[in-house]
Design a protein around this nucleic acid. Structure first.
Lengths: 159, 159
DNA sequence: ACCCACGACGTTATAACATATCAAGCGAAA
DNA sequence: TTTCGCTTGATATGTTATAACGTCGTGGGT
């Protein structure tokens, strides 16, 4: 299941697995996997694409789970903080993590046409960025890598 | 002048140089380096840090150069498009390019405390991101690399 | 059993960032 | 001189995010 994205897969299974993994991790770390948090993760897994906070909020509020922005932002903060969800800076949007079972520096391929997002991982930290940080005494805590371009489908549609 | 940032330098000189380089490049490519565009670049060079569009707009409007958001966004679009300015996705902010004379994939070190920004360059495009793109048929057009952490000053202030 | 500290959630309001649209000015090309 | 293209002016609105404050429920210490 490496480099998931732009490909077919058993989606019901994929959602169920991810949800139960999240549940397990929360139990283990004594985190509260509350209904709102669970539902937000479920929505992101289900759509399997980057979604804006307000897109998610629309769904939540249609289901009577809170209709104000802070509700969804708090849930997203929690999910991001614990690695279940990543924020795509380029889109101001959020997407479920494709490999939540281990720590990693995620990297994204974002289609500028259809906004589809594929997640992969990157080594980095070394290389020029790391050495620039060392030289200047900068202490890196987090790295964002996002590539923008055309996904196969959109490139095919108008090549 | 590689990896400028978090360091002392002759700032007046640095601004003058960058401005005249921009001017030259615009002349060469028949681009209009209009007063608003010039002033926005100058402001970013002067502050030498990431600034929000509305921070810049405040300054512009105090000087009578247009007081509505589109004015500054249009200028920023122009400057970004031609490589004089970079957008920092992590901050929804903008910063003058540290090496505008050649094409490059910029990478940033962003201090989460004081929002200072240092620019460096990165190889990338190869490595796992490139190979993931190849595998899936994704066509990369642009890459964003941003590291968040603590700059020397802020790390020193509370270590 | 009590209470109280803490974390989550509800709600209002507002801040911050960005764009659509249409009209007007102005210089260069035809 | 007319026309074209690009820049700017101006209004309105859309989108993303957070501040601030109150309430509620749970679980630990007494």
């Amino acid at each position: 299941m490496a480099t998931i994205g732009f490909r077919q897969h058993d989606h019901g299974q994929c959602i169920a697995t991810a949800l139960s993994q999240a549940e397990a991790k929360c139990a283990e770390q004594k985190l509260q996997f509350t209904p709102v948090r669970r539902r937000v993760l479920e929505i992101l897994l289900d759509k399997h694409r980057a979604m804006g906070a307000y897109d998610i909020l629309d769904i939540l509020s249609a289901e009577g789970m809170g209709s104000q922005p802070p509700v969804v932002y708090r849930a997203l903060d929690f999910l991001v903080q614990h690695g279940f969800v990543h924020r795509i800076e380029r889109l101001n949007a959020y997407t479920a993590c494709a490999h939540p079972t281990h720590d990693h520096v995620p990297a994204f391929l974002v289609c500028r046409e259809c906004k589809a997002v594929a997640e992969t991982e990157t080594e980095l930290t070394q290389g020029r960025l790391g050495s620039a940080a060392d030289k200047t005494g900068f202490r890196i805590e987090k790295i964002v890598v996002e590539a923008e371009g055309l996904c196969p489908a959109c490139a095919g549609a108008r090549p």
